Simulated scan of single mutants.
Amino acid sequence: MLKFTEVLGKCLTITTAAAIIVMMVHIVTHALMRSLFDAPIYGTNEIVEYWYLPIVALLGIPAAQLQKKHITVTLAIERARPATASVFRVFACILGALVSIAFAWFGLMKALENMAIGSTADVSDVITWPVYFLVPIVFVLLAALYVLDALVIARTGQTETDLATGEPPEHDIEYRADRSSANGHNL
């Protein structure tokens, strides 16, 4: 399972980084062409808005879940016994998976609708319907990550395990400082 999450994390990171780099090159080229030759690249704003930004934003959702970099509220479980905390975490993972599947289903219906009408960007001819299929893909992936989280918690009883490394995530500076001082290291 660690190998799967490691490969998935690398794929998400590489794809997102590539989208950001291509977007930057596209925008800079557009600006230079517009300024120097008075010939801007057609549809740059639409391509950035409807292609690059959704790719970057949507791929960040499963990446955050995979690396435990999302916002969590632990008020109910931080004082609970480990077994009780595990039950609550498993329940939260199942709820997260169900909500993700609902978003995936809604996203799929919307993507099919946009494909049927041949959706384009506002007033330009830039085709946008294919990027809508990223929504169901991302949310099915997110649901799978929630299920993996639930399985890890149920199997190990540990509520905080980074799926990418198999170790507890380092949420904040206090956690790292406590861990370093316990190991005899200074930050």
Rank of each mutant, 00 (worst) to 15 (best):
A102S: 14
A121P: 15
M115H: 06
D122C: 06
F88T: 07
A116K: 08
A64S: 13
A80D: 10
E78M: 06
G118S: 11
T161V: 15
E160S: 08
V123G: 06
V152Y: 00
D122A: 06
H171M: 11
A92E: 05
L163M: 12
T156P: 09
A144Y: 03
T72N: 10
Y146C: 12
A76V: 06
V90R: 02
L98E: 00
E170P: 08
A85C: 04
A111N: 12
R81L: 09
S119K: 15
M115C: 06
D149M: 12
Q65S: 04
C93H: 01
L145R: 00
L66R: 08
L142R: 00
C93L: 02
R176Y: 08
E78T: 12
W105L: 14
E113Y: 08
K68N: 13
H70I: 07
A76R: 04
T120D: 06
A164S: 14
L142Q: 00
N114P: 12
F133I: 01
L134N: 03
R79Y: 04
V131G: 09
I61C: 07
L163P: 04
D178F: 02
E78G: 03
L148R: 01
W105I: 14
L112W: 11
P130K: 06
R81T: 14
I77V: 15
R79T: 11
P82D: 11
S86M: 05
A143G: 13
R176E: 09
